[in-house]
Amino acid sequence: MNSISEEQDFEIVSLVKKLQQSPERDQRAATGGRAIFLAEAQMYPLPVSIPPKRRHIEWKTFFFRKANPKMATISTLILIFTLLFGGTGATVYAAQNSLPDETLYPVKLMTEDIRVGLSPRSDDRLELALQFAQKRLDEMLAMNQAGYHPATTIGDRWEYQVQSALRLTANMNETAFTQTLNQVRERLMEQENQLGQHLETHPADPTLERVREQLRDHLGLLDEGLADHDAFRSRVHNNDFGHHPEQEPGDTHQPGIGPDNTQTPFLHPAEPEHLSTDVPHQSATLQPTHHPEEEQHQATMQPQHTSQPQQHQNSPDPTSHPSEPEHRNDSGGNGGEHQGGHD
């Protein structure tokens, strides 16, 4: 059966192969055909760019990422940077007008520290310190106006910025010293006027009173500095920024200040010499001016009551007054007794 089929296949193939004997091609016809072919080729305009169909294919491959990996890398990087810094940038921008009782306030403080840290010139850092001190004062006044007691940590932050400005002034060379001193004095006088006007029309607040007292001390220091440059420098280098009648004689606590418990105060690399040489007993981290129990104050604001005892207003050191603990955290382990904060 199979042999019959194979036989027939062989016969069929033999028949088909008879067609292999094809007539020879006429050479004249072949030459004519070639000439026609080349003439037709000459009729087509020479391509000056990639033909349209081919260009379309390239776009298809581009979108399917079979070609041009550079573009894919660049677009990926753009996407990553947008996700990383686009969202962060929006958050930072939104944080700039936040108040201390708002979630984004720490972001605002952080960006301020970064701005100072990225400023290479002491002039710029001085200007930033004065600007941020003004911001802290504005925040405290806004809180007070809204019926809240500004936390002492904001006052500490204000004091930290002012002390930074005074240190930068003390490090100025003699040529720029007087001009800078006047500039700082002028700005602090503006703040004192602003604070005084505010307190005339708004209820008293211990933090604001403390700030007012510190302002006066600093202005006195600056006045002294105008008369005696070296005395000013010496006091600043010794972290003696003002009059502290409440300080106990035996108290070893230094009057320098940090912004708050949770934030490391910014120390610019350009100014460690007065810390390391002039104040050898002090570590690089500045110490807060307030007593240890004050470290337990919460940043959140307590509702303000106009019936507060009068002794709040005239106390330069709020920690020495029994009415102050309304800012204290009763969960602190330092013996801070919670007194309600509500009179």
């Binding site: 026609i36 080729a41 087509y44 990639i50 169909k53």
Partner: peptide, 14 residues
């Protein structure tokens, strides 16, 4: 002739 003509046209169209 037609085969080679179509070939030219295809080349022209990319």
């Amino acid at each position: 002739a037609e085969t080679f003509s179509r070939f030219l046209k295809a080349l022209h169209n990319g």
